[in-house]
Design a protein around this nucleic acid. Structure first.
Lengths: 258, 258
DNA sequence: GAGTGGTCTAGACCACGGC
DNA sequence: CCGTGGTCTAGACCACTCA
């Protein structure tokens, strides 16, 4: 194929012109990236599975391997895909990763104790307005509410409240959550096909109230880290709201700035 | 130049072999990247200035433009360089950026008030052991200590303590800090040639003590966000330690997870 | 040894910015 | 108009994994 202007042989309408009023230009590799995201979203390949080789994708889309490569490069940089030389390119997963809890930035001051989990509660309710708004639902829509504790070295460290859209997590029960090993996000992928690919957190310092002080075994009024997390799947669709209270007397929240 | 194995025509010894005991392999573009970092570190191009064009660098290093491109791509991803189509590639700077305070993650709950600064203190001291350790100095080495407040809408929001190696910041005085407009990091680049390119933060919730409560105008014991930041220049050399206490009643610390 | 991703090259053409 | 970075292609060869 000679160096013809961007045009994809597969499907979906794409443009290469700079027509007035539009996004004005989208390089080929971004269009390929978009197609791949669509496929991922549709569940064409499951979490942890390999996607087709670059050669095969190039043939399928009617572009050169280099163009597919650049699309895959970006998806790997976005943590949607994982490249493994000699083996292939795989759909990123929260399960079976060496780093458990990919989104949890809590670090112990010393040591590296594994975290223990204790489920407190799991019930279905109607979404209050403020949660519905963040999850882009309507107030009163069905919602799942989960409460749990994370322990480190026998001491409770994190009290989490988790809210999920009811229609996406239909069969979710306390039993399922208890049976499952590893992070919830692994379960969400395997059982409900929901991939968390990105999240935004808002962090504040707050004083422990009666409930949190009780669960975290600290005096009333103890300063705690409040971490409000909104997680997104493909297409920037919010699918989980979480509010964690962290006891930071022996742990800290680690962050890297670039 | 035919497709000969990696070998740089410019200078510096590089290897392409997989000899036992070494790092075993370093692609050409990474070696180029290393050379560019060396140049940046040496101050060959100042903050905000353009570096030579890709063609020129390719000629200088005796590699193809594509290889230089990949090196520059990584440096841009690391925020050491900024690409501007049609204009050139520039050395990243904390000054004259639209986003002031590149490393400050504090966000107001509503509005977007500009931050006011108030210098409290600037004195030269001898480094205590714990600071010296983090800054990779010896205890007792000369050190500059700065204290300042950040205001938002007339209210104090952040109390910062900043520690800098004395030998790197020789002429730093309260007067200089007060005269300067914009973030300290801009001044550090222009006056002392010190570029902050990366930082690590440890975040905790703490209770306001007498000093911080006074400066932030909150009751004693108010929960505050404690943000300890260690900043690095080229070569992962730590050059600034900072401890900020944030009043999070009307602001939050924003973070993005990928 | 076959198949995968990873590197390097060379050349053509496009988009953008400023003269 | 020219020079810059940005895209796309085609082909060669290298490094890694696994059967």
């Amino acid at each position: 194929m000679p160096a013809s202007p961007p045009a994809i042989a597969d499907d979906s309408s794409v443009r290469s012109d700079g027509a007035v009023g539009g996004p004005s230009f989208s390089p080929l590799y971004r269009q390929i990236k978009g197609l791949l995201i669509t496929r991922l979203q549709a569940g064409e390949w499951r979490a942890g599975e390999a996607i087709p080789s670059e050669q095969e994708l190039a043939a399928r889309f009617g572009v050169s391997q280099g163009t597919v490569r650049k699309a895959v490069d970006e998806l790997a940089a976005d943590n949607l895909l994982v490249r493994r030389q000699g083996k292939g390119t795989f759909v990123a997963t929260h399960a079976e990763e060496k780093i458990q809890y990919r989104f949890l930035r809590l670090t112990p001051d010393k040591g590296a104790e594994a975290l223990g989990r204790q489920l407190l509660d799991c019930k279905r309710q109607r979404a209050p307005a403020w949660i519905a708004k963040l999850l882009q639902m309507r107030a009163g829509d069905p919602m799942v509410e989960v409460r749990r504790l994370l322990h480190s070295g026998g001491q409770p460290v994190v009290l989490d409240e988790i809210w999920l859209p009811g229609d996406l997590f239909k069969g979710l029960t306390a039993e399922k959550l208890n049976q499952h090993r590893g992070p919830f996000y692994g379960l969400f992928e395997a059982e409900f096909g929901v991939h968390m690919i990105r999240a935004e957190e808002k962090i504040r310092a707050v004083a422990a109230d009666a409930d949190s002080a009780g669960h975290l075994q600290v005096p009333l009024g103890t300063p705690l880290l409040s971490v409000e997390r909104l997680s997104f799947t493909y297409g920037d669709k919010p699918v989980e709201l979480r509010r964690g209270l962290y006891n930071t007397s022996n742990h800290f929240y680690r962050n890297e700035l670039n």
